[in-house]
């Protein structure tokens, strides 16, 4: 058999899970770095993804929720299928496969000087969090920051410490949290994200809105933003579909002639308007 000298984009590198944190009853954060604890296999920009591979079971495309310098890559993963089920069983020290980084990431440069409005639902906060934390890290480059986030219940809210303590303390930052239906423990807002957004009615002047969540939430949020006067060039979303290769070859994550894994996952609404309405 010929020994290949070329780059092998479909072959994962092995990384070590150095920490695991329960975020919600069905979401865990996995912190990974090179085996033995020396640095990272690659850098991941805000909004980019990686194929996380529990080798004997499968691979899933997961948005990297944060890269902390050369310390760790963090993936917040919801238990929904075969691979993620297995991943939720592992313990610290486990080696897993990882390949990437994939996708275009958020336009962090183009958004400099703007006020930022982040709107997320459920696990949809995970990809947005990489942009939110990037803004806080480069706080002077961005204007006011508003974060609107909702989940089914209080227990299902992800990244609670940041939501309720760390982010509201940041300069010029407001965090609005809602849950779908009332609970005794919850004193905050109750209702779906799109209606909360309309209630808050943030002005579109000088703002870029970034949204991610369940497809149905994204659809309603886009409608609300349009009603509130946001133009298609002011609205960014990050999409997801089933993926296998992650590099624009295997075929399945297309919207029209674009592949979410390669040409996305981040799109301006103005770009999506040109594509078939299949997202």
């Amino acid at each position: 058999m010929h020994k290949c000298e070329c780059e092998q984009p479909l072959v994962p590198v092995i990384v070590e899970v150095v920490d695991i944190k329960d975020e919600t009853p069905d979401i865990k954060s996995f912190f990974v770095k090179n085996p033995g604890g020396q640095g990272l296999p690659f850098n991941v920009a805000p909004g980019q993804c990686a194929m996380v591979s529990y080798l004997p079971v499968g691979e899933s495309m997961i948005s990297c929720t944060w890269q902390e310098e050369q310390e760790y890559l963090q993936f917040a993963i919801k238990r929904v299928g075969l691979m993620t089920d297995e991943l939720h069983q592992i313990e610290v020290g486990q080696k897993i496969g990882l390949r990437g980084p994939y996708g275009n990431g958020f336009p962090v440069e183009a958004c400099k000087g703007k006020d930022m409005l982040f709107i997320a639902g459920g696990i949809g906060l995970a990809p947005l969090r990489s942009f939110i934390k990037y803004c806080f890290k480069h706080r002077e480059d961005y204007g006011k920051i508003k974060i609107i986030y909702g989940s089914r219940s209080y227990a299902d809210l992800c990244f609670k410490e940041e939501l309720f303590e760390l982010w509201p303390q940041q300069k010029n930052t407001e965090v609005f949290v809602t849950i779908d239906s009332a609970e005794e423990v919850w004193k905050g807002h109750v209702g779906f994200v799109p209606s909360y957004l309309e209630e808050l009615n943030p002005s579109p002047n000088g703002v870029v809105a970034v949204t991610c969540g369940p497809p149905i939430m994204i659809k309603f949020v886009l409608g609300s933003l349009e009603k509130m006067g946001y133009t298609d060039e002011q609205v960014i979303t990050t999409l997801e579909m089933r993926m296998k290769c992650g590099i624009g070859k295997c075929g399945r994550c297309n919207i029209g002639s674009e592949y979410i894994c390669l040409d996305g996952p981040v799109f301006y609404l103005s770009q999506l308007r040109d594509l078939p309405q299949e997202w």
Partner: peptide
Amino acid sequence: IKLEGQDMKIEQTFEDA
């Protein structure tokens, strides 16, 4: 793919020229 405890190894790739 080879598993050893918590370890996972990729010992060989199979490009065929």
